[in-house]
Design a protein around this nucleic acid. Structure first.
Length: 294
DNA sequence: CCCCAGGCGGTTG
DNA sequence: CAACCGCCTGGG
């Protein structure tokens, strides 16, 4: 277990395991944290923090103190036993692929993000690329999120559903959200009038949550699974995107029974996603030319 | 000009 | 129910 001490403007967490800030923030699960110097920083639930990891088992959290440290540790899922997660996944999957993926991205943790933010963010993610997703969310937050100050700088909370509903579909469209504008607006409207009761759904079962989310125009199985996994703590949710489709075709051509993978299937999905995307990025880095496209 | 990017809704056979 | 298709936008 880790040990927490407080320094002048940071919390120091020693004794952490199975955690890497770079892998965790760069594995595609969140869109509001950026690398800056030797650390990563961003905004979650209307608060700012900066993370540095001077050694594998030490984490510094700037912006954290006695009053909010538990919130940040929960966000990072440092209060979860990922050694147990990995043991179970190795057993449930069998084969070398999951072991290789867990070796490659063994420092990933599934963040516990704010539910509405995940719903809205993964609507934006559809048929889109990560740099543009991040840009849209940044501009959306600056436009409709509540400003606050931290570390001598101005930051913005992710906009509430009320703020986006009040803004209206046209202003959401003006953020370059394209055809997703009406989806975002529909989701916001449903949260505002209670048809999508996110607070209550935090305690709902997987099926009930999925059913509620997919009532929203523009939320299908993939976006619902992402929201369930990243925003509602459903580590069994298994989003299948284009990368995971490639993984399944490549490593499990005989088929993979997702339902048999157990309570941590979604965490496995993240390891596999990061593993496959990393491989492709490594391979594409120097050789991507028009001639390679044929 | 093409294609693609962490999908989805709608239409068709 | 499976297979298509169009979709805002931006970059290659």
């Amino acid at each position: 277990m880790y040990n927490i001490t407080f320094e002048k403007n940071a919390a120091r967490v020693d004794g952490i395991k199975d955690f890497d800030i770079g892998q965790t923030f760069d594995c595609g699960q969140c869109f509001r944290f950026e690398q800056s110097g030797n650390g990563w920083q961003g905004v979650q639930r209307g608060s700012w923090a900066r993370f540095e990891q001077p050694s594998p088992d030490t984490l510094l959290i700037y912006g954290a103190d006695e009053s909010n440290i538990n919130g940040w540790l929960h966000f990072l899922a440092l209060d979860a036993d990922y050694a147990a997660v990995k043991r179970e996944l190795a057993e449930k999957f069998g084969g070398e692929t999951i072991k290789n993926a867990m070796e490659y991205g063994g420092g990933i943790r599934i963040l516990r993000q704010e539910p509405w933010e995940t719903v809205c963010s993964f609507i934006i993610s559809q048929n889109n690329n990560i740099p543009r997703i991040k840009k849209i969310i940044a501009v959306m937050s600056e436009s409709f999120g509540k400003p606050f100050e931290a570390n001598g700088e101005k930051y913005y909370a992710f906009p509430t559903a009320d703020a986006l509903y009040e803004a209206g579909e046209d202003k959401i469209f003006a953020l370059k959200t394209g055809f997703r504008a009406k989806y975002i607006y529909d989701a916001a409207a449903r949260v505002c009038d209670g048809r999508l009761a996110l607070d209550a759904l935090e305690n709902a079962g997987a099926d009930e949550l999925t059913n509620a989310l997919t009532q929203v125009c523009g939320i299908g199985p993939k976006v619902a699974a992402c929201a369930s996994l990243y925003g509602f703590g459903h580590t069994e949710a298994f989003p299948i995107d284009v990368w995971i489709k490639r993984v399944l075709a490549k490593y499990y051509p005989q088929g993979l029974d997702i339902a048999s993978l157990g309570q941590y299937a979604g965490i496995a999905q993240q390891y596999l996603f990061y593993y496959e995307r990393g491989h492709c990025a490594d391979a594409a880095g120097k050789t991507k030319t028009n001639a390679d496209r044929i």
